[in-house]
């Protein structure tokens, strides 16, 4: 089966006054229909830049180069801006982190939902409204007809995020990119929204890219995981492989950082990764994690560290892995 979205050797550079920031370096992945791929990493690791590059929404200082960004078999890089804008929102939709800032406070929910559809498709206002009501019910909003007349400020954060999801679905996209969709929400709402996204994705057989730093969320909904550090992919694999047998020291460090009820002892020290994430500006070489890695040797500074592939989906970027590959 050919992939819904295929990204090969994607690089994103940002020209800043301080120099060129290599936000994304040589990232490749693919998303299949009905599957969820999760991009995981700390802030500044380039995960949101990947989403923006795919959507063609990079800031003016951003330069994107890739061997291939293919969506439903079409090369997005060669597409004109006009053609791209018919794709954006229609074939692929994005859900952002902040439901407060991504809805327009001056228009009603109904206005904004209907516009999402009439912008892309020739449908009557009534049809668009019917679709909006249908989708609001799908995302679990009751009394949807009266909700359409409300403004964003009249709704709670959880409701707003549901509206965002409904808006993303208006045109029936085949790919949905969710950028930290639950970070701004309460834990109780987070579980509901993730459950909703997952079930809707299954129902409409969409591909999903879930961008998050929350390993808890990832482990419950994703099929495949790409762990990113400093713009690079450090480890990829199936969700179970990654969580049960992490290879890269960064992945292992991340897992030890989070307190897990029942596993970590209360009051005891958590594992932590010393130091801070380096800024990928200027000429870069070697493993970017070596400054924070306890296993780093001189060899880690060598140029041209490639991803080591151990199976079709599983690969990692480390020359001194703390586990033998046979175990993983």
């Amino acid at each position: 089966m050919s992939a819904l979205l295929e990204v090969k050797h994607l690089n994103v550079d940002l020209n800043l006054p301080a120099g060129t920031l290599h936000a994304v370096r040589d990232v490749s992945f693919s998303v299949e229909k009905g599957k969820t791929l999760s991009l995981v990493g700390e802030s500044g690791c380039g995960k949101s830049m990947i989403a923006l590059a795919i959507m063609g929404l990079l800031p003016p200082s951003g330069i994107c180069s890739a061997e291939k960004i293919a969506f439903e078999g079409l090369d997005l890089q060669k597409m004109s801006e006009k053609k791209m804008s018919t794709f954006r929102g229609a074939r692929m939709a994005m859900i952002f982190q902040e439901p407060m800032t991504s809805l327009d406070p001056c228009y009603t929910i109904g206005n904004q939902l209907v516009e999402a559809l009439t912008e892309h498709k020739k449908v009557s206002a009534r049809e668009a409204r019917d679709r909006a009501v249908f989708l609001l019910e799908k995302v679990g909003i009751t009394g949807s007809a009266s909700r359409l007349k409300q403004y964003p400020h009249q709704l709670s954060g959880g409701l707003r995020q549901r509206i965002m999801i409904a808006m993303g679905l208006m045109c029936g996209p085949s790919l949905i990119i969710a950028d930290e969709p639950t970070t701004a929400l309460d834990v109780t709402i987070q579980a509901q929204i993730m459950g909703l996204l997952a079930s809707i994705q299954q129902e409409f057989n969409m591909g999903m890219i879930l961008i998050t730093h929350d390993l808890g969320v990832v482990s419950r909904v994703a099929d495949d995981v790409v762990i990113m550090y400093c713009g690079q992919v450090v480890e990829t694999g199936n969700i179970k492989e990654i969580f049960n047998n992490p290879i890269h020291p960064y992945t292992r460090g991340l897992m030890e950082c989070i307190p897990v009820p029942g596993k970590t002892k209360p009051g005891e020290k958590l594992g932590s990764i010393p130091g801070i994430v380096p800024t990928p500006i200027g000429d870069l070489w070697g493993c970017s994690f070596r400054s924070r890695c306890s296993l780093a040797t001189q060899e880690c500074a060598a140029r041209g560290l490639e991803l080591i592939k151990i199976s079709d989906k599983r690969s990692f970027r480390c020359i001194n892995p703390p586990v033998t590959i046979a175990d993983a």
Binding site: V187, A191, D214, S219, R220, V260, P261, G262
Partner: peptide, 15 residues
């Protein structure tokens, strides 16, 4: 029940 601990064997909780 809403706390999502990292465990790929578990699905999303019913809240």
């Amino acid at each position: 029940a809403s706390v999502l601990t990292p465990d790929p064997e578990l699905g999303l909780p019913e809240i």
